[in-house]
């Protein structure tokens, strides 16, 4: 039973206001969004900050949904989504399994996004929105570009190999609580 207390302590120490672990679907995305939104409302957060947090959450959650069918083993499946509230930032974190052969491509996209400034991101977004196909389920990386633009911060990420086939993709975005 001690782990209940442990989890509670970790969550308090890390200032996590919401943690969801498990299966991800559009319905669950909607529930998590509703919960997070109520949370932000009750904290009396400023509208622009709230909208940015909401936008980043949507992109993160829908990204996770795309990989939700991956089962590494009985113990290693599903994904995790967390929101932390620090003094100056909201921190949105997600973790999910992805196929090993997708790691290089994703890492390249994220790295490229982090090399761009405000205008560079705007141009990349423009190119992607104009040239991507309708049928493509947002797989062009538009989501990550949007996250980088809305947050105004560098994207933080890590790939932890789980076995030959899969890696665990950890992703973190910060949203400033005070407009500068």
């Amino acid at each position: 039973m001690k782990y209940i207390y442990d989890i509670h302590k970790i969550m308090s120490n890390k200032n996590l206001i919401l943690v969801y672990e498990g299966e991800f679907t559009q319905d669950i995305t909607k529930s998590v969004l509703t919960m997070a939104e109520r949370n932000l409302d009750s904290l009396g957060e400023e509208v622009n900050t709230k909208k940015k947090v909401f936008n980043v959450m949507v992109e993160c959650l829908q990204n996770i949904c795309k990989h939700s069918d991956i089962v590494v083993s009985d113990e290693e499946r599903g994904a995790v989504f967390m929101i932390g509230k620090e003094e100056e930032f909201y921190v949105i974190m997600s973790g999910n399994f992805i196929k090993q052969d997708q790691v290089e491509g994703l890492e390249g996209k994220l790295h490229h996004i982090n090399t761009l400034d405000k205008d560079g991101l705007k141009n990349l977004y423009r190119d992607l929105i104009k040239n991507s196909e309708i049928s493509e389920k947002g797989g062009a990386g538009l989501g990550f570009v949007d996250i980088a633009r809305k947050s105004g911060q560098k994207l933080e990420y890590n790939f932890e190999p789980v076995n030959d086939q899969y890696s665990f993709f950890a992703f973190k975005t910060k949203i400033a609580r005070i407009n500068d």
Binding site: K51, V58, Q62, I129, I134, G138, D146
Partner: peptide, 13 residues
């Protein structure tokens, strides 16, 4: 009020 990136391409359409 909000739109996701999946919608943005369709809004352009």
């Amino acid at each position: 009020e909000y739109f996701n990136t999946a919608s943005s391409k369709l809004i352009l359409d």
